[in-house]
Design a protein around this nucleic acid. Structure first.
Length: 593
RNA sequence: CGGAGUGUGGCUCAGUCUGGUAGAGCACCGCGUUCGGGACGCGGGGGUCGCAGGUUCGAAUCCUGCCACUCCGACCA
């Protein structure tokens, strides 16, 4: 073992020092800024001390990947956690490590598709439950439409077709046959009309709307569907972009443009509130520039969230479709005046991508941190069992605690507590729950049982420097305070992310050159570590058509995109960053997922 | 689809240059000692080295083709 700088380290301390072990560490070992960094936690030797030692510690990958990273050098707006997660060059590895170590998801044998593991799916279920409530509270009802859409349906809206045609899964046959012991597609079983696997459901739902709507009394028609969709993506990443993903898609029809526009904005606001209140993920809501519109839409709005590497994630969209789909599909109603008119429709959706957003918003060196509102288990009790008589008391105490906690109400729901009685070692279980992001972790030992007290850790504030922070209080007090404590964790995660977002949107960039300097300089760095860059909010003249395309081209050279035009405008004047013309509003510019 | 890289037990990797019949740590199983900050000892189980051909007495290693994954582009929730 090449642990040159700490010759005294015992194997025991080495085992607690996983940072010293991956081959990755060699990548940074020559970096001057790494060597000086004090080792984290119980780790005795600096990362640079380690060479080719192949010792393992795979389960610690989240911690070890990130601990080795460079500090963001001299960045005024550097994230508080940028030394681990804010480093652009290692962020993808960190992201994948969390997916693996927090048991969220894994790539499947099917190209471009993922397996959402129970813990990750549990998070999705909590999201679904909360958002479904919000969707129903705004008057919508759930329904389900077919996975397969006849090609002819899909073909009706020209822009829509153009937007999705390149990423379509198509079903052409309905039978297999065995030839020489091998299964083959039966050429005899060709479908008369190919079916596409839905990439979105405007057309199949529009077809139903066309039949369901006759009178203005049938409007508004407010439908939502929870479903999977398929878009044949070239490049996929867990949760953020996969060929198949889960989502919710709302589809509504209205009598007037005003009503439909109001619906579009209402659902955008539902998404904003859901994202900020439930996911603790601050967002900026705004309108997409015309070239970023949903295919077939008159206007598209989005909420954009800032990830810990500074990139923007489109976290939800809401579209005003005008009468485009109504005309294409003959969705008409008879008005009070007796006239036949086309409906105005909307659609809006969020997907399992949000899970990726939560990971990249709240994750840290120790793994995932889940906002209590979406944590499948909010309080996990790990009993310290030692194969001794007092184990029974510890377990009994734990069961009582779990039961009492489950009788309380947190954030409007029954508190989700778990007594983890699995046979694994307590220490392993503790770290597993830390990596998974359980908001509160209770460690229950004989001393607690005897004293009738609860010792616990908050995942949002797990460490003070290198030390794990735990606190203790009497059972009754803990049970009484747990809901408030969880609410506090929810709030603190949001506050942390909100502060990061607010601190990293620059509004002082007044020219394209300045923009290029800010973003361009970093891209010339090698992969060793690009400094954190946030977003830029800049005045612009809202160019359209070819002029807008030119803007996009120039931004592309800097790997930048227009995210949205925030609804909340400051009214600041100035001249357009791109055209020099008088600005009419501000636009958000960022690198994006 | 272009550029770069990687495929070796569950995980992270060494071994490939210089062919000789597969390793480490962690994880897993058993026993014992431990146990409030990622325990220790002893003993085990698990890999046709991404796939298919080829060269060779012999291939993880050399050659050819293919596939998959990761990162960077193009495309997108």
């Amino acid at each position: 073992m090449a642990r040159a700088a700490s010759p005294t380290a015992s194997s025991a301390s080495a085992s607690r020092c996983p940072a010293s072990r991956t081959a990755r560490s060699r990548r940074w070992s020559s970096s001057p800024s790494t060597a000086a960094r004090p080792s984290g936690r119980t780790c005795a030797s600096p990362p640079s001390a380690v060479g080719a030692s192949p010792e393992g510690g795979a389960r610690h990958a989240v911690a070890l990947e990130s601990r080795l990273l460079k500090e963001a050098p001299g960045m005024p707006n550097a994230l508080s956690v940028s030394r681990m997660t804010g480093n652009r060059s290692t962020f993808p590895q960190w992201y994948q490590a969390i997916n693996r170590e927090a048991d969220l998801s894994e790539v499947s044998p099917v190209r471009g598709c993922m397996i959402i593991k129970p813990w990750g799916y549990g998070v999705w279920e909590e999201m679904q439950r909360d958002l479904d409530r919000r969707i129903k509270d705004t008057g919508h009802v759930n329904a389900y439409f077919p996975l397969f859409i006849p090609l002819s349906f899909f073909a009706k809206e020209a822009e829509h077709v153009e937007g999705f045609a390149k990423e379509m899964a198509v079903v052409t046959h309905h039978r297999l046959k065995t030839v020489d012991g091998k299964l083959e597609v039966d050429p005899e079983a060709r479908l008369e009309e190919p079916l596409i696997v839905r990439p979105t459901s405007e057309t199949i739902i529009g077809d139903a709307f066309q039949r369901w709507i006759q009178s203005h009394r049938d409007l508004p028609l407010l439908i939502n569907q929870w479903a999977n969709v398929v878009r044949w993506e070239m490049r996929t990443r867990l949760f953020l972009r996969t060929s198949e993903f889960l989502w919710q898609e709302g589809h509504t029809a209205h009598a007037t443009a005003d009503d439909a526009r109001a619906e579009t904005m209402k659902m955008l606001e539902v998404y904003r509130a859901f994202s900020e209140e439930t996911l603790a993920m601050p967002v900026i809501a705004g309108e997409k520039p015309e070239n970023e519109r949903f295919p077939g839409a008159v206007a598209t709005y989005s909420i954009e969230a800032m990830m810990q590497d500074g990139k923007a994630l489109q976290a939800g969209t809401s579209h005003y479709l005008g009468q485009n789909f109504a005309r294409a599909q003959n969705i008409r109603f008879q008005s009070a005046a007796g006239e036949l008119e086309y409906c105005h429709t909307t659609s809006w959706g969020v997907s399992t991508r949000l899970i990726g957003g939560v990971v990249m918003t709240h994750g840290d060196d120790d793994g995932l941190r889940l906002p209590p509102a979406i944590a499948p288990r909010q309080i996990v009790i790990v009993p310290m069992l030692r194969d001794k008589p007092e184990d029974a008391e510890v377990l009994a105490f734990g069961e009582a605690l779990s039961k009492q906690l489950s009788a309380t109400t947190t954030l409007g729901e029954r508190t989700r507590a778990l007594l983890d009685t699995r046979a694994q070692r307590s220490a392993d279980k503790r770290w597993e729950w830390i990596r998974r992001g359980a908001p509160i972790l209770v460690e229950l030992g004989p001393r607690d049982a005897a004293a009738g007290q609860v010792t616990f850790m908050r995942r949002d504030a797990l460490r003070n420097g290198d030390k794990i922070v735990s606190q203790a209080m009497p059972l009754a007090e803990f049970v009484a305070r747990a809901p408030a404590l969880l609410a506090e964790i929810q709030a603190s995660l949001f506050a942390e992310a909100k502060a990061r977002l607010d601190a990293n949107i620059r509004t002082d960039i007044a020219s394209f050159d300045a923009l290029a300097e800010y973003f361009g300089a970093a891209s010339e760095d090698d992969e060793e570590g690009e400094a954190f860059k946030g977003w830029v909010r800049a005045p612009w003249s809202r160019p359209t058509g070819a002029a807008l395309e030119t803007v996009e081209e120039r931004l592309k050279s800097l790997k930048l995109t227009l995210r949205n035009i925030p609804l909340a405008q400051t009214g600041a004047g100035g001249s357009c960053l791109f055209t020099g013309a008088p600005a009419v509003e501000e636009v958000l510019i960022a690198r994006a997922y």
